[in-house]
Amino acid sequence: MLHQKQLAFIGGGAMAEALLKGLLTAKLVEPQQIMVCDVAQSRLDYLRHTYNVLTTVNGCDAAGQADIVFLTVKPQVIDDVLVTIAPVMTPAKVVISVAAGITIDRIEAKLGKAPIIRVMPNTPVAVGAGVSAFALGQNARPEHGELATLIFDAVGKAVAVDEKAMDAVTGLSGSGPAYTFLFIEALADAGVRVGLSRQTALLLAAQTILGAAKMVVETGEHPAKLRDAVTSPAGTTIAGLHVLEQKGVRGTVIDAVVAATERSREMGQLHGK
């Protein structure tokens, strides 16, 4: 699907690097099919030397030569970017935006009939283990959904959603890595508290979270069923779970996701959502 397609990344930050690295690693494209545009020449030099991709400081040139245009810039500069590339956009070009809080309608208003795909990836795309929710614009067709799935499966998993769910996605999977890092840190601190070295405790904690998540994804079982399989009568696990339930950990996590979702909505409104 990406054979002989030219890709342009408008913005060469961490997300752009994670995506182009994933595409190259999966051998979906060759380096000469990718052009990155950024205002920082030092960043372009790094990407060119590291991945052998093409680079430019001219966003209009990059978008003009591309079949697929990635908007990998901060939301506060998105309007300037859209104005810059609008003259070279056509209905034949596909636009994939990862600009947080920027709606499809807002992009379509500037770029006309081009098919728009809005994506909310999370930071583990940097290690090929992210999850990315995407929504299609009114000019997009089913094959554009297949394109988004192909691209974002290269850096983890892709999930199609209605655009109205994007704030919830942000609150759960967008912010979720931070919640998980906090839990890993807490597990490691607990390990140190009961006598483990810091290095050993951190490794045990991180690998435990990784393994548990992999079991959920690969078995397809409900987490409660997997939890029950670990929980022996009058054993150690139920003693620990009892404390977590007493302290309201489940409700606290739910409240955190709700708060992050509400904040995402607020930020969208601030950016002209």
Rank of each mutant, 00 (worst) to 15 (best):
L2F: 08
H3Y: 11
F9Q: 04
F9H: 01
I10N: 05
G12C: 07
G13D: 05
A14C: 00
M15W: 03
E17T: 08
L19D: 04
G22K: 07
G22T: 01
T25K: 12
K27W: 02
V29T: 08
E30G: 01
E30P: 00
P31Y: 13
S42C: 01
L47D: 01
L47P: 07
H49I: 12
L54Q: 15
T56V: 11
V57N: 01
V57I: 13
N58Y: 08
N58A: 04
D61G: 00
A62Q: 13
G64S: 09
D67Y: 09
D67N: 14
I68K: 00
F70K: 06
T72I: 06
V73L: 08
V73F: 04
I78H: 03
D79E: 15
V81C: 09
L82W: 12
V83C: 08
V83N: 10
T84Y: 01
T84P: 01
I85G: 04
A86K: 09
A86R: 10
P87E: 01
V95R: 02
I96R: 04
I96D: 05
I96L: 11
S97D: 07
S97V: 03
S97P: 02
A100V: 15
A100T: 13
R106E: 09
R106P: 03
I107W: 10
I107C: 04
I107A: 11
A109V: 02
K110C: 14
L111N: 09
A114R: 08
A114L: 03
M120V: 14
T123N: 04
T123V: 13
P124D: 09
V125W: 04
A126T: 15
G130P: 10
V131Y: 06
V131E: 02
V131Q: 02
F134I: 08
Q138M: 12
Q138P: 03
P142F: 13
E143C: 09
H144A: 08
L147A: 12
L147E: 07
L147Q: 10
A148N: 06
F152D: 05
D153S: 14
G156P: 10
K157G: 00
A158F: 11
A160I: 08
V161K: 06
V161I: 15
E163I: 15
E163P: 10
E163M: 11
A168Y: 10
V169Y: 08
G171F: 10
F181W: 12
E185W: 06
E185Y: 05
D189W: 13
V192Y: 07
R193I: 00
V194I: 15
L196K: 02
R198M: 04
T200G: 00
A201Y: 11
A201G: 05
A206L: 08
T208L: 00
I209S: 00
L210N: 05
A212I: 13
K214N: 04
M215Q: 06
V217R: 08
E218Y: 03
G220Q: 09
G220T: 13
K225C: 02
L226Y: 14
R227D: 06
A229F: 07
P233W: 14
A234F: 10
T236H: 00
T237P: 02
T237Y: 11
T237R: 01
I238T: 10
L241P: 01
V243N: 00
V243L: 14
E245T: 09
Q246M: 05
K247S: 05
K247A: 10
V249A: 13
G251W: 07
I254P: 00
V258K: 14
A259E: 08
E262Q: 13
E262C: 01
S264Y: 12
M267Q: 11
M267V: 11
Q269D: 14
G272N: 12
